[in-house]
Design a protein around this nucleic acid. Structure first.
Lengths: 291, 291
DNA sequence: TAAAAATACTCCATAGGTATTTTAT
DNA sequence: ATAAAATACCTATGGAGTATTTTTA
């Protein structure tokens, strides 16, 4: 069977005349006759009763033609889907970022992206780095925002900006009167960290490897929870610049002798089918994240 | 595009591996690759992102594969329709008879047909001869029961039985004490006939051409109406043998000097797609109408 | 007799196979 | 380095065209 054959039988049913149907189908009458005969032989039924005066569609033929019409309709659908998405800059873009970045980055970039690509639908995903990488590999994400270094070189990876860490302390804390802090100050206070798996935890640990907070594991917590903990002076924590706010109970101190930071990069598959579009999007995001 | 191509992309989507999909499709990997590439070129889109390690179905590809699955499902439907109707003796048979025959013939033949062909669905149509012929030509009927002669030799036509006419008279009528009548008796009474177009009217008129009943035209009437008219002695009428009953108010008289009748035949298109089945049915009907 | 579908036969397009190359991780 | 898809090239199937025959109303 063949989509073309279905076209043929629909035309024959319409015109009840092989030669006329052949003409409309832009083939010779024998060509069309042959295909119909072959189809009937293949199905082992008669689609048309025919003689030199009349063509009658059989009951079975009628049922088959109904299906055929529906099939051709779906074939047109496929062509429509293809044509539409080839012409217009439409479709879906799935963005992913890890939890200590997503709430602060997405609000910066999304309004502009939505403006520039009104036909695109943006989906946001907040996942730990490991999952982001997997999802990007699997095609469940189009773009992931990751902290450098990114090992997977299946991805096109480009650094967007450096996000320095500040020490968040309660204004009631003894450190709060300082403008800056240094590494040794960390020894004096309790440091709050997110649970295992958060890259921000790992990054922070680089600068205070001595910390052992197994006693309080903030499972399923977010940076915002941590911030609230700091506000009641339950400890101090590292807050990236992008997440700084005007919290009345907090003070953010910069470091003098160390320079803790995370580099944020945009990643997408080199072979993405939407590569051209992703490059467009990347260009805009780069502009938006020039801090 | 091609139904086979749709198969290919569905398999690739399933296995996310060209060579595996090719194996399942029983073709070589290059053959399958070629067709997919051609399809993508034809649609001007990418259905799959692919490199030497991974195959990812694109968003558009996913939509297309959804349609493709639905198309293949309908293709299977077609094959099912064909296979079922080729194997089983199933389907629909549309029978037609003119109004002065249908109510008496169908009850005789249908119970047995339904018994012999439990998978067949029988549809009955009661129409004037002219329409029956048209419908049979058009394929809206499979079988028509007509009065001979049938001119259309597109049809296979076979006489089933001779249906003699009796004169129905009210028991209160002066003719009622007779056992038989003859042509001249008709002059003495009012003769009731159906409206124009009924073949029974024409047949009756052959034997009493002098009748002029333009005054009362029984438009839209049936033989049963006529019979009730006769019962109240509003006149007499010709009733075919097949329609005789045990009506207490009526007497049916046979003719001596003339022999009015109609010959009833079964007709179907010589080229009917159901010819074999119709011949089976005809065989049974012939048995049932051996009066 | 004539209109229409089926057949005959040739040609060409193209799907498929094998061998090989390219590609990207 | 290697796995996998793409390409090259050849073969063969089969779809399409023209001319002709068959069918049947």
């Amino acid at each position: 069977m063949n989509i073309r054959d279905l076209h043929y039988i629909i035309l024959i049913d319409k015109y009840k005349h092989f030669a006329k149907a052949a003409e409309v189908a832009n083939v010779s009458q024998p060509a069309l006759s042959m295909q119909v005969n072959k189809l009937e032989a293949e199905l082992n039924i008669k689609i048309f009763e025919r003689n030199n005066k009349k063509v009658i569609t059989t009951d079975i033929g009628y049922k088959i033609i109904e299906q055929a019409k529906s099939i051709l309709h779906k074939v047109d659908n496929i062509k429509e889907i293809a044509k539409y998405s080839a012409n217009h800059l439409s479709g879906e873009i799935k963005l992913g970022a890890f939890p200590t970045l997503a709430p602060y980055l997405f609000p910066i970039i999304l309004p502009e992206l939505a403006l520039q690509f009104p036909k695109l639908q943006f989906f946001l995903k907040e996942e730990k780095t490991e999952n982001l990488i997997n999802h990007l590999v699997e095609g469940k994400l189009d773009i992931a925002f990751l902290a450098l270094p990114v090992i997977a070189d299946i991805f096109f990876t480009e650094k967007l900006f450096r996000d320095r860490f500040y020490l968040a302390v309660a204004k009631t804390n003894k450190l709060a009167m300082r403008k800056t802090v240094q590494k040794t100050d960390l020894d004096l206070t309790k440091i709050l960290l997110l649970e295992e798996g958060h890259c921000l935890r790992d990054q922070a640990l680089e600068f205070c490897p001595f910390v052992n907070n197994t006693k309080h594991d903030f499972s399923g917590s977010s940076l915002e929870t941590l911030r609230q903990m700091v506000a009641v002076d339950a400890g101090v924590t590292f807050i990236p610049e992008i997440a700084l706010d005007k919290n009345a109970k907090l003070k953010y101190l910069s470091f003098t002798d160390i320079n803790p930071y995370r580099d944020i990069a945009i990643c997408y598959r080199k072979g993405s089918a939407k590569l051209a579009l992703l490059e467009e999007i990347n260009k805009i995001i780069k502009e938006l994240t020039k801090f």
